[in-house]
Simulated assay, not measured.
Amino acid sequence: MALPQRIKELRTRNGLSQAALADRLHVSRQAVTKWEAGRGIPDVDNLRAMAALFGVSVDHLLDGTGDDATPAVLRHPVDVASLEPYKPAGRPLGAKSHRAVREAFPDAVIYPLARMRSNNRVQELLEWGLMLAFDTPYGLFGLSDSLSNRDAHYLVQEKNRHVLARVTPKAVEGKELPEPVAGRTFTFGADRFRRTSHPL
């Protein structure tokens, strides 16, 4: 299997559309379309980010060698808007996404996560340039991403695995992490996450 087919196979196995993969890698959907059609090749940074996102080695992505350790993707369909908010004890507010992830993983320890999108090299240069030239605040791309992506993220800790869960309006999607999360912050793919100090 060649690189274009491998990208498409790993993308679909992980339940991502071309647009969703492009969003995770901070590239255009057209770039992903070109890669999968064999009309372009991802650069080294994108290959590394894709390998981390899919949980495989760069060697496996390029030529099919190395360990294919793609974590299992779990999907639990749910209409989040129809749920009653779940309010953890001692918290002033509840959330429907809390209820959705609690129903998908009823016996797990679940921590809400704050997601921080990492800039790619071009975005980093633009941020610094705008900050120096126009005295704009640093973090515009992260702010824009936070406003456009309203999905909630959670760290789900079960006996034998840790799962990164994402609650969309129509489903709870979970991806098993390759190793347990030890600290309060961790990186997965192109995103950085920080968990709360108290579980739901």
Rank of each mutant, 00 (worst) to 15 (best):
L16F: 08
L16I: 03
L16C: 03
S17I: 00
S17F: 00
Q18A: 06
A19M: 01
L21W: 01
A22P: 09
D23C: 00
D23E: 01
D23Q: 02
R24T: 00
L25W: 04
H26T: 06
V27T: 13
V27Q: 06
S28F: 04
S28E: 06
R29E: 04
R29M: 04
V32H: 00
V32R: 00
V32Q: 01
W35L: 06
E36L: 08
E36C: 05
A37E: 02
A37K: 15
R39K: 13
R39S: 12
P42W: 08
D43C: 13
V44P: 04
V44G: 13
V44W: 10
V44M: 14
N46M: 14
L47Y: 03
L47E: 14
L47V: 14
R48A: 14
R48M: 14
M50R: 06
M50F: 08
M50T: 06
L53C: 07
F54H: 14
F54I: 12
G55N: 07
G55Q: 10
S57G: 15
S57C: 10
S57H: 13
D59P: 09
D59Y: 09
L62E: 14
L62Y: 13
D63L: 11
G64I: 06
D67Y: 10
D67N: 13
D67E: 15
D67V: 15
A69S: 15
P71R: 03
P71M: 09
P71Y: 08
A72W: 02
A72F: 04
A72M: 11
V73F: 04
L74C: 05
R75G: 07
H76S: 10
H76L: 09
P77Y: 08
V78Y: 02
D79V: 11
D79A: 14
V80W: 04
E84C: 05
Y86N: 07
Y86G: 06
K87P: 03
P88G: 11
P88S: 08
A89I: 06
P92F: 02
P92H: 02
L93D: 15
L93G: 06
L93E: 14
G94N: 08
G94Y: 09
A95V: 01
A95S: 12
K96I: 06
S97P: 05
S97C: 05
H98C: 07
R99A: 10
R99D: 02
R99Y: 03
R102P: 03
R102I: 07
A104G: 06
A104K: 01
A104Y: 08
F105Q: 00
P106S: 11
A108L: 12
V109D: 00
V109H: 00
I110M: 02
I110C: 01
I110N: 00
Y111D: 01
P112N: 05
P112E: 03
P112C: 02
L113A: 05
L113V: 04
R115V: 09
M116V: 04
S118V: 03
N120A: 02
R121G: 03
R121Y: 10
V122Q: 12
Q123N: 10
E124R: 04
E124W: 05
L125E: 15
L126N: 11
E127S: 15
W128M: 06
G129R: 13
L130H: 04
L132A: 10
A133R: 06
F134N: 11
T136Q: 11
T136H: 04
P137H: 08
P137N: 09
Y138K: 14
G139H: 02
L140S: 12
F141C: 01
L143D: 08
S144N: 13
S146W: 08
L147K: 14
L147P: 11
S148M: 12
S148Y: 05
R150Y: 01
H153V: 07
